[in-house]
Amino acid sequence: MKKHWWKILTVVLLLYSIVGGLLMDVPRLHILNESIRNTFYHVPMWLGMMILLLTSAVFSVLYLKKPLQSYDIAAYEFAKVGILFGILGIVTGMIWANFTWGSPWSGDPKQNNAAIALLIYFAYTLLRGSLKDDQQRGRIGAVYNVFAFATLIPLLYILPGMTDSLHPGSGGNAAFGDIDLDNRLRMVFYPAVLGWTLLGVWLATLGIRMQKISYQRELSELS
């Protein structure tokens, strides 16, 4: 039970962010109106994705330093959950954009870059699929994962800042921190980020356990 406290915390935080996020008072802003509640679901997906992908890249670096299979499995599972969060982030963003910007895809640089980020990670899973040998898959996959994550940083944080974006915080729009994210939003926003990220970690740990069991079964069938 002691080891599972964070899972209970996840459930509590998510329940709070769903119930509180939908029922609590939010600031009234022009155009955004009630859709501002999507802050609790769309933005945590992106933050969660970046945290999960960073974790995946860290496991890949560890694997390159010391080739333990569990590092490799962890890197892959975290990347997979990161992809899931990325897809959810794009979908929630598209729904939101449809109401506030007028169309689901408006060629916003952050939208485009998010799509590219997903392409990179789909390529990562493809690469892993096409390598048969475990050790080789681990090493080559780790190299690509580290490289891919490093190219993501200029893509997501430097380049969009140089062009106009409809997203807050660039192209003359005010950042969330300035006016929009007032204290009423913060009360749900930060727990929501923590909750969704913990859910991602939970999903990844389940995936890791499943992979480890299937490897062990393979080994025992061979011997």
Binding site: I116, L126, L127, S130, K132, Y144
Partner: peptide, 17 residues
């Protein structure tokens, strides 16, 4: 080069990065 069907893979892996 380490994977099979590498010509396609080069484009798929290379273009997004």
């Amino acid at each position: 080069a380490k994977a099979q069907s590498n010509q396609t893979l080069l484009a798929v892996l290379g273009l997004p990065v």
